[in-house]
Amino acid sequence: MSNPAIDWGSPEAAKRLARRYAAERRFKLLGLSAVALSMAFLVFLLGTMLIGGIGGIDAAFLSGSDATEADAAGVWGAVKGSFLTMVVTIVLALPMGVFAAIYLEEFAPRNRWIDIVEVSINNLAAVPSIIFGLLGLAVFINFFGLARSSPLVGGMTLALMTMPVIVIASRNAIKAVPPSIRDAALAVGASEVQTVFHHVLPLALPGILTGAIIGMARALGETAPLLMIGMRAFVSSPPSSITDPATVLPMQIFLWSDEVDRAFVQNTSAAILVLLAFLLLMNGIAIYLRNKFETRW
């Protein structure tokens, strides 16, 4: 620099420093207020739902199905529809996702085909959910002629959507298992398949399950793809099998929010509370699993 002799004690320098420190404090305050504002939104949103809905939750609401009268309507039909849909989703998406992840991490050769698989999995994870709904409508309903509004079609559509999430989580979990485990198993004579299924997979399982639960939580809250395949019918009795017409919890919220009758406002908020409670439970289980079984190698 051209002026090596700055007088740090001079009033100019002191003013300059004060200005820089003030800028520092302003910046820090700005960051803090961004966090605070985001949190405030969260609290406001949850608070609105809690105040609007807590009064609507009672035994009749939890055990009833959809009805034309707001007082008689309940969420049980929708909860059961969600449950059946989630069963179909997990039965399809978990094995497929884990198998794909095992193949890509442990057995896949490095070639262009595998690159295409990887790129398409990463992209599928970011494709808008409504596109999966269009796929389900075009393929499962129009082409294969499966029943509209059924948990079977809904579950299959959501499984396609959830699979990439499970693949990505499972790959990370499998990658985290140290190579020494594999080397040890191979050294005492296990085959590659035995190594993976007897040693790598059990160690990666907590991570895989955490990813699967998070993917399922996302699928549970999903509405748009299910709108496409017609799960918005008025269903006044709980579905008894995966081919019956059904509705799911987020769809019930959407249908009730559309009602002209003001009495449904409380029902909508109450159903949102039920949905959020399920999501909280699932995420809680995922966090518990991660903390309890996570191994640092």
Partner: peptide, 29 residues
């Protein structure tokens, strides 16, 4: 083990199949 590997491979091909399914159905309609 060959059968197991085959099923692992086909699971990972499902991802491509989904992508193709999305593109094909959107393009067709």
């Amino acid at each position: 083990e060959r059968a197991v590997l085959l099923s692992l491979l086909s699971a990972s091909l499902l991802a491509i199949l989904t992508t193709i399914g999305i593109i094909a159905s959107l393009l067709f309609e």
